[in-house]
Design a binder for these strands. Structure first.
Lengths: 216, 216
DNA sequence: TTCGCTATTGTACAAGTGTATAATAGCGTC
DNA sequence: GACGCTATTATACACTTGTACAATAGCGAA
């Protein structure tokens, strides 16, 4: 999302530009992506129209096609952006947990129920993407890729924490499913439980897959 | 959905009518609901348009408003119909399991991963409803009602199977979340696991909440 | 057969859809 | 200051959207 060719020298320039009515292309594309995520969360896939998104971004409807090849491409780009954010947040939480394999695993999973991931709007955006997987081939292939990556990372963490290689794939599927199910309910306004509850439940599920029951 | 005032006497009449180009109101309403469920599963909430649904039902677009007050009402009626079907299938599976409380609980939960519930199209329809909860108030209130009922039934089964009243609410939430997460992934074409895998995973989660580890 | 009534159609309508395009505005460079 | 270039707008287009409505068809009753 950030121009990789930006050097330290144009940093001041970028900062100046950010204050003005946004003639910086990256900034505008990011605005559109943020607006798309918000509309998806608020109005669902059905309400994610060109005009709704551009209104939210404070931009004329014609501009969307200047930055993206069409509405579908913007939605796909939004998925990529949100998925990257989630992936990074999980990885950060894991790194912050230190070197103990079980602690890293638990941090990786329970980060799903802390900010910035546990925010209702982000989860609602994510839920909207789920609803597009069956009808939008681009979203479908992104979904497959993202989930394969998540399960793969989880599998490695599980094995590092002592789960046998024979059990790890099933455990990864099982933990992913629980996290998704908890996300799903948390993404709706009238949830029967909180992110803290979800955190506790996920820890318990994790502990049941680990060899020694000494999980924190 | 079936006319409750139908007596044994008009059964022959109904059968005859069913063979003809459907002038039976109940039949037509049911056709529209089935078509709506199919379109929701295939094209998602975004593709569930009046014309797509009526085409699928083999009916002119004007007819929808003759049986329902609008597209939204048809979608809501479809949710009610699908939810009733799922509820009934779960209850049937539970009854068929006999009288042992743990067996009834396990049957109730694992029925989610057997026909008729485990059919991809039904799960995809269900997933489409999830995506409407945030944007459609009617679907939202139905969702709240359905899930409260499901969790309530689960909670009672858990307590009957020996889970303490203090733990039962959390257990019900936890099991519902896992089932939903497994459904979610199974509803997509490119799932990383099968309904049988889901069945095994759900049994394991159930067993971890039961007092004695003698779950079948 | 004739009548009454409802199911059903076909079409029309205004509003909303994604996209295309010509005109404008405003920056950086000379 | 003038120029070139890209971001940006406003609008127009063809099409789809949900709904409204008048016309028709076909059953059951008389």
């Amino acid at each position: 999302m950030t121009n990789p060719s930006a050097t330290a020298d144009d940093t001041r320039l970028l900062v100046l530009r950010a204050l003005l009515p946004a003639r910086d292309p990256d900034r505008r594309a990011a605005d559109l992506i943020a607006a798309c995520a918000h509309v998806l969360a608020t109005a669902g896939a059905r309400g994610a129209t060109v005009r709704a998104i551009c209104d939210r971004a404070g931009v004329s409807p014609g501009l969307l096609r200047h930055y993206f090849s069409g509405l579908g491409a913007l939605i796909a780009a939004t998925y990529v952006h949100v998925a990257q954010g989630v992936t990074r947040a999980l990885a950060d939480a894991m790194e912050a947990a230190g070197t103990d394999p079980q602690a890293r695993l638990i941090a990786y999973v329970t980060a799903s129920f802390r900010p910035p991931i546990a925010a209702p709007e982000l989860l609602a955006t994510w839920a909207a993407f789920w609803s597009l997987v069956r009808s939008d081939p681009a979203i479908a292939s992104l979904h497959t890729e993202v989930y394969a990556g998540y399960r793969d990372a989880l599998q490695k963490l599980l094995m590092a924490a002592g789960v046998s290689p024979a059990d790890a794939p099933q455990a990864a599927v099982a933990i992913t499913a629980l996290v998704d199910g908890l996300w799903l309910e948390l993404s709706m306004e009238t949830s029967a439980f909180t992110a803290d509850d979800a955190n506790i439940i996920a820890r318990r599920w994790l502990a049941s897959w680990l060899p020694a029951q000494i999980a924190t």
